[in-house]
Design a protein around this nucleic acid. Structure first.
Lengths: 155, 155
DNA sequence: GCGTAATCGTTAGTGGAGCATACAATCCCG
DNA sequence: CGGGATTGTATGCTCCACTAACGATTACGC
């Protein structure tokens, strides 16, 4: 995330040759794919009123009850402030409960409420539909390859 | 992925359709990859002060001078209102010029200013570095496959 | 132990982006 | 010519990401 050695190829590319079409840019396709997925997601979830991030947080807290906010952020690639706003929203809807950690007084331990668990259950069935829509484009082998390649990007 | 201390909850949502870990969700990986790319992008572009969207619009307008806003939005998967705000920002910085289309009075024809063209040139060299950072993870064949699969999602 | 550094949560502010709605101008077609 | 569709615009809302600061707590070095 900090300084990075730029391969010579990139410098050559930048100096002599013009970059071709916008569609040659890998990052461009990732963004478009994300937008398409995001759009379909919000359609599927229009009645639940939950976003990708919010569901991810619910899911994670359900998996690891008592997880601290900082760890939620780390798993979902968010900073502390962003995690705060999302947890705030979920707490306002009484899907999540905050408790001061007994082990480490700096941390908040997060737990799902019963409402939160019900919302997550509904969300998971919606996600099934959403994933089916997405996976329908690929063979199982392709899905595996895609996930593996995407993982290489986000480490 | 760690210890699961909630077999009860797990049994609950196992009832309809069994969804495993969050990391099994393809959409989840797409979002994480997008966040990682977005983050690196903004770092690379911190001094230029341009976002992905803004560069995409500049690029597109340069490729097709006189393009209408509605067509920009269509190519980049944005609605009219969103396109507006981005073009507004670029116009405020005098990177883009609006002209009423002579062919269709409803449309605005968009053109790059000289400043806009210089900014785009700078942006393209930055993108070279950014793409090198991204492509460094893959073989050429993998890149081709990745782009093809992502296109299946957003096309 | 004690003081300093690091960590975590919190608050406040900034900015980009997406969406819905409403309205005016313009075009197209019957 | 007139009604419906298209395009740009304005307004307002939500969400997400980041920064900077602060207090509380913990961890570390001596």
């Amino acid at each position: 995330m900090g300084i990075r050695v730029v391969p010579a190829a990139a410098l050559n590319h930048a100096s002599d040759e013009k970059i071709g079409a916008l569609t040659d840019i890998v990052g461009f396709h990732i963004r478009l794919a994300h937008v398409a997925v995001y759009r379909h997601f919000t359609e599927t979830f229009s009645d639940l009123g939950l976003t990708q991030k919010q569901v991810s947080v619910l899911w994670l807290v359900d998996d690891r009850p008592g997880i601290a906010q900082i760890d939620v952020g780390q798993h979902l690639q968010m900073d502390r402030a962003t995690t705060m706003t999302i947890v705030n929203r979920l707490q306002a809807r009484e899907y999540i409960r905050r408790e001061r950690s007994e082990i480490d007084g700096r941390k908040q331990a997060l737990y799902l409420t019963d409402d939160g668990r019900m919302a997550l259950d509904k969300a998971k069935t919606c996600i099934s539909q959403h994933e089916a829509w997405l996976k329908g484009r690929f063979t199982p082998a392709e899905i595996e390859k895609l996930v593996e390649m995407l993982s290489r990007i986000h480490e």
